[in-house]
Design a protein around this nucleic acid. Structure first.
Length: 647
RNA sequence: GCCCACGUAGCUCAGGGGUAGAGCGUGUCCUUGGUAAGGACAAGGUCACGGGUUCAAAUCCCGUCGUGGGCUCCA
C-alpha cells in the first residue's frame, strides 16, 4: 500500500499527500491563506475536523466561513464556546442542545433561574476569554456506556436522553479547555477561530419543542470572522427594525390596536383603511376576471354546522356564543357557507367548475402568546374562494390558482417566496386513499407549473393536503401566504353532489384557496417589503400639495380637484410653517409625489414636482405632470394579464 | 397557553420609597416662507389596571390586561 493518498480538489486538480496527513496539513499544501481561513473540510462528502487524518484517496474540499456548511461549523463551535462560558459562570446550568441556525446559533440550558438580557454581557465577556485562550477543539469517539458515565457524572439527563437515541454503539464528544460536549461535529481547530461574537437575546424554549416538557432558557447569538461582517449583521437587524410594519403602521398612521378593545383586533385609520380598500378592490377585480363569482355568507353559524364540517371535533380554536339556548359559533373559515350556497341548487356536471369568492372575515381563538402585529391576529379577512369541480378538472383548477397566486404576488413586488407541499397531519379526518389522491393532484399541478417545492411532512390541514406559499417578513421569518388545499372530506360530510353525464349523482372535488390570504397579514408583510414606500398605484395618498403661501391655498385646491378628476388620491397641506418644514413632514409620510405650488406656479399653471427618492424635479405644467404619472397609477399590467390577453 | 422582559404625555424615552421630566408632535400668537426642522408661549400624565407592604408606592411584592422576543400552533 502506497504511503501517499491522492486528493481530488473541487476544481478537478489532484494533490498527493502523506497517508495519515491531517485535513489541515492537506489544506496548507493548497495555500497558507486558505489554511488560515479554513474551518473544516469535506472528505468524500463527509464533514471532517481539520485535525482528522486522511487515510485514503478522496474528493477533498476545504470549508471556509464563506460557505453555508462552513458557517454552520463556525456557529456551532461558537455555541460550544457559549455553553462553556455559561457553565463557568453558572456551574448548575445543564446544557441541552445548541445548534447553528440560519444566521447564528443558540444554546438551550436548563437553569434554576432563566437568563436575562443583563446576563448576556457577562457571558459574552467570558466567551472572549475562552476565545483569547485559543483552546484547541479535540474530538474523541467513545462507547455509549462511557458517554453515559460521563454525562451521569455531569448530572445531565438531557445529554443522556440524546445518547440513548444514538443508534451507533459509539458517540463522539468534543472537548476544548475543560468543556466536554456530546456532539457530531465537526468544529473549528481552536476557540481562537471565533473572532467577533454578539449574544442577541434570551427566550424560553421547551425541551424538544414540546409543551409537555420543561421550559429551558435559550440564548441566541451570532459570530463572524471579521468585525465588519458582525457590524453588517447588526445593521441588518437595525434595518429590519426600521421596516417593522408595527413601527411603520404607527408612523404612517395606518392602524392601531387597543388594550381596552382586545388583543389581536385591528383598528384601521383612514390611510390604512384606504390601503386595505385598494388591495381588496384590486384582488376582487382580479378574481372576477378569472371567472370567480362573488358570494357573501354570515359571520355567525349554528354550532351544528361546525360539527358537520369537523371543526368542532378538531377542537378548532373558535369562539362560541349562545342565542336562545342554541349554540352558535363565529366562523373561523368560510367553507361551510360556500357549501350551503352550492347545495342550494341541483348541480350539473356542465356547471362545474364553480368558483365562489368572498372577502370573508373570520375569527380564530389564537393563543395570546402568538399574536404579532398584523401578521398574527384574531380577526382577519381572507380573499377566500372555494372551487367545486369534477375530478378531471382538478389539476387544471389547481394549476390556475398557482398562476393566479404568482401573478398577484409579483404585482405587489414579491419576487421571492417558498413553496411547500404539506402532507397529512396526525390530527386529521378521511381515508388514506383519498389523501393520496389529493396529494397527487397537488403534486401534478406543481409539476405543471414547473415549480420547485419542499415537502412539509404532516403540515396539511385536518381535511386535506395543501400547497403553501410562504412570504418573508423583514426579519426573514416565513409567514403563510397563498395556500391551496384539496378537500374530499367536506363534500362527503355535507353530502354534496352533481349530476353527471350519465344521469347519476357524483361527488364534486373541492379546493380551498386564498391568494393574498389574510389581508391583515398580507398588508403587514407588504408594508415591510416596501418599507412603507407604497408604489404609486396602491399608495393611500398619492400626491400631497404644499402651498408656499396662504395666497396659494385656492390654487392648491384647484390642482387637487383637477387630480381628483383623474381618480388620484390627493391631500392639500394647509398647515402654517416654513416650506422646509412642510416638505420634511410630507417626506416622512413617504408619499410618492409632493407638489409645491407658490406664486410662480400659480401664474404659470404649473406645479413644482418632488418625487419620492429623487427629490426636487422642478416645475412643470399641471397637465404634463398628470400625463407623466398616469402609467404609474395602474397596477403592473405584466402581472394582471390573463392568458391570451394581448391588450 | 408557557418562559423571560417591558408598560411613565399622542410618539421616542429619562427618572425612581417623600405626590413627575426631556425631545418630537399638538394648540395659540408672531413669522408668509422656494425644496428635509423659523421663533415665543401654552396645554397635555390616577406613571396600564386591581390588590398588598409602608407613616408614605409611579418606584417594592402579588394578580390582571396589554406589548415585545421565543416555544408551540396557524392565514
Amino acid at each position: 500500500m502506497s504511503d501517499q493518498v491522492t486528493l481530488t480538489l473541487p476544481d478537478g486538480s489532484e494533490l498527493e499527500v502523506q497517508r495519515g496527513a491531517t485535513a489541515l496539513e492537506a489544506t496548507e499544501r493548497i495555500g497558507p491563506g486558505l489554511a488560515r481561513a479554513a474551518v473544516a473540510a469535506k472528505v468524500n462528502g463527509e464533514l471532517f475536523d481539520l485535525s482528522r487524518p486522511i487515510s485514503e484517496d478522496a474528493e477533498f474540499e476545504v470549508l471556509t466561513f464563506d460557505s453555508e456548511e462552513g458557517k454552520h461549523v463556525y456557529w456551532h463551535s461558537a455555541s460550544h464556546v457559549m455553553a462553556d462560558a455559561v457553565k463557568q459562570l453558572y456551574p448548575e446550568a445543564r446544557p441541552t442542545i445548541g445548534p447553528a441556525i440560519d444566521d447564528g446559533f443558540y444554546y438551550d440550558f436548563d437553569v434554576p433561574e432563566p437568563f436575562t438580557e443583563d446576563d448576556l454581557r457577562q457571558i459574552e465577556q467570558k466567551m472572549q476569554e475562552i476565545i483569547e485562550a485559543e483552546e484547541p477543539f479535540s474530538c474523541e469517539r467513545i462507547s455509549k456506556s462511557e458517554a453515559e458515565e460521563l454525562f451521569e457524572e455531569q448530572q445531565n439527563r438531557y445529554k443522556l436522553e440524546l445518547i440513548d437515541e444514538v443508534e451507533d454503539d459509539v458517540v463522539s464528544i468534543y472537548e476544548h479547555g475543560d468543556f466536554v460536549d456530546l456532539c457530531r461535529g465537526p468544529h473549528v481547530p481552536d476557540t481562537g477561530r471565533i473572532k467577533h461574537v454578539k449574544l442577541l437575546s434570551v427566550a424560553g424554549a421547551y425541551w424538544r419543542g414540546s409543551e409537555a416538557n420543561r421550559m429551558l432558557s435559550r440564548i441566541y447569538g451570532t459570530a463572524y470572522p471579521r468585525k465588519q461582517q458582525l457590524e453588517d449583521h447588526l445593521e441588518r437587524i437595525e434595518e429590519a427594525r426600521r421596516r417593522d410594519h408595527r413601527r411603520i403602521g404607527r408612523e404612517l398612521d395606518l392602524f392601531s390596536f387597543h388594550e381596552e378593545a382586545g388583543a389581536g383586533l385591528v383598528y384601521y385609520h383612514p390611510r390604512g383603511a384606504m390601503l386595505r380598500h385598494l388591495i381588496t378592490e384590486f384582488a376582487t377585480n382580479e378574481h372576477i376576471r378569472r371567472g370567480y363569482q362573488i358570494v357573501r355568507t354570515p359571520h355567525l353559524v349554528k354550532s351544528n354546522m361546525w360539527e358537520t364540517s369537523g371543526h368542532a371535533q378538531q377542537a378548532y380554536p373558535m369562539y362560541y356564543t349562545d342565542i336562545e339556548g342554541q349554540s352558535y359559533g363565529i366562523k373561523p373559515m368560510n367553507c361551510p357557507g360556500h357549501v350551503l350556497v352550492y347545495k342550494s341548487h341541483t348541480r350539473s356536471y356542465r356547471d362545474l367548475p364553480i368558483r365562489y369568492f368572498e372577502l370573508g372575515t373570520v375569527y380564530r381563538h389564537e393563543k395570546s402568546g402568538v399574536l404579532h402585529g398584523l401578521l398574527r391576529v384574531r380577526g382577519f379577512t381572507q380573499d377566500d374562494a372555494h372551487i367545486f369541480c369534477r375530478m378531471d378538472q382538478l389539476t387544471e383548477e389547481i394549476t390556475g390558482v398557482i398562476e393566479f397566486a404568482d401573478d398577484m404576488l409579483r404585482a405587489f413586488g414579491f419576487d421571492e417566496y417558498e413553496v411547500f407541499l404539506s402532507t397529512r397531519p396526525e390530527k386529521s379526518i378521511g381515508a388514506d386513499d383519498v389523501w393520496e389522491q389529493a396529494t397527487e393532484a397537488l403534486r401534478g399541478a406543481l409539476k405543471a407549473n414547473d415549480l420547485t417545492w419542499e415537502i412539509d411532512e404532516g403540515g396539511g390541514a385536518f381535511y386535506g393536503p395543501k400547497i403553501d406559499i410562504k412570504m418573508k417578513d423583514a426579519l426573514g421569518r416565513l409567514w403563510q401566504g397563498p395556500t391551496i388545499q384539496c378537500d374530499f372530506n367536506l363534500p362527503e360530510r355535507f353530502d354534496m353532489t352533481y349530476v353527471g353525464a350519465d344521469g347519476e349523482e357524483h361527488r364534486p372535488a373541492m379546493v380551498h384557496r386564498v391568494v393574498l390570504a389574510g389581508i391583515e397579514r398580507f398588508m403587514g408583510v407588504f408594508i415591510e417589503q416596501c418599507a412603507g414606500e407604497f408604489p404609486m398605484w396602491i399608495a393611500p395618498v398619492q400626491v400631497k400639495i404644499l402651498p408656499i403661501n396662504d395666497r396659494n391655498f385656492e390654487y392648491a385646491e384647484t390642482v387637487a380637484h383637477r387630480l381628483r378628476c383623474e381618480d388620484m388620491r390627493v391631500e392639500v397641506d394647509t398647515e402654517s410653517g416654513t416650506l422646509g418644514n412642510k416638505i420634511r413632514q410630507a417626506e416622512l409620510e413617504k408619499l410618492p409625489y409632493i407638489l409645491v405650488v407658490g406664486d410662480n406656479e400659480e401664474e404659470a399653471g404649473e406645479v413644482a414636482v418632488r418625487k419620492r427618492g429623487e427629490g426636487d424635479l422642478g416645475p412643470t405644467k399641471l397637465e404634463a405632470f398628470i400625463e407623466s404619472v398616469r402609467p404609474e397609477t395602474a397596477p403592473d399590467s405584466r402581472y394582471c394579464a390573463l392568458p391570451g390577453d394581448t391588450s
